[in-house]
Computed example of a mutant assay.
Amino acid sequence: MDAKNYERVVRMPFASIYPLYVEKVGKKGRTTAELDQVLTWLTGYDAEGLREAIADERDLRAFFAGAPAMNPDAVLIKGLICGYRVEEIEDPLMQQIRWMDKLVDELARGKKMTSILRGTVAA
């Protein structure tokens, strides 16, 4: 990814992406609560933290920089997203963004929550 597109992606407000995720999973019969569970598992944000990230329109760079606790099992997320193997993405921030995309895709595809959460259950 060139520098211009990289900056465009990392400057996207989480508030602009979240409703797209809600719509995507909703079309497949999944709930906002399930989406929030997946995002909480990945980032450590609780429901209030996710709402704050939406309200203050922080960009993805700030969203991931401020994540309370990235899940150590996120390294188990594998597969293709946007034409890239998530496990081969070298830039840590872009990898985190693609992990999030991959988890949302798995949720929308109807995978079981234990599989999405790599065998764990979020609190």
Rank of each mutant, 00 (worst) to 15 (best):
L93A: 07
R51T: 04
P13Q: 14
A108F: 07
Q95A: 06
Q96T: 05
R118M: 14
L93S: 04
V25N: 09
V104S: 14
T114F: 05
K102Q: 11
K27E: 12
I17L: 15
K4P: 00
V9G: 02
D101P: 00
G66T: 05
I89E: 10
G119C: 07
P92I: 08
K112S: 14
P13S: 15
D101N: 14
L39E: 01
D2V: 09
E57M: 04
A65M: 02
R98P: 02
E57I: 06
L117A: 06
Y6G: 12
K4E: 15
V22I: 11
A62P: 02
F63G: 02
V9T: 11
F64T: 12
K112D: 15
E52W: 03
Y6W: 12
A47R: 13
L60D: 05
K102N: 08
D36W: 03
A69W: 00
W99P: 06
T31D: 14
A69R: 15
T120E: 15
E90D: 13
R11P: 01
L76D: 05
I77G: 09
A33G: 03
W41D: 14
A55Y: 06
R61G: 03
V22A: 01
A69E: 01
V38Y: 04
A123Q: 12
Y18A: 01
E52C: 01
A67I: 08
S16G: 05
G44W: 13
K28L: 03
A53I: 06
G26L: 08
I77K: 12
G79M: 07
R118K: 15
L103H: 03
A3L: 14
A69I: 00
Q96L: 07
I54F: 11
A108Q: 09
Y18F: 13
V104L: 10
L117P: 06
K4L: 07
V25G: 08
A33W: 00
A108R: 11
E48P: 02
D56P: 01
C82G: 02
G26F: 13
A33E: 15
G29H: 03
I17A: 11
E48I: 14
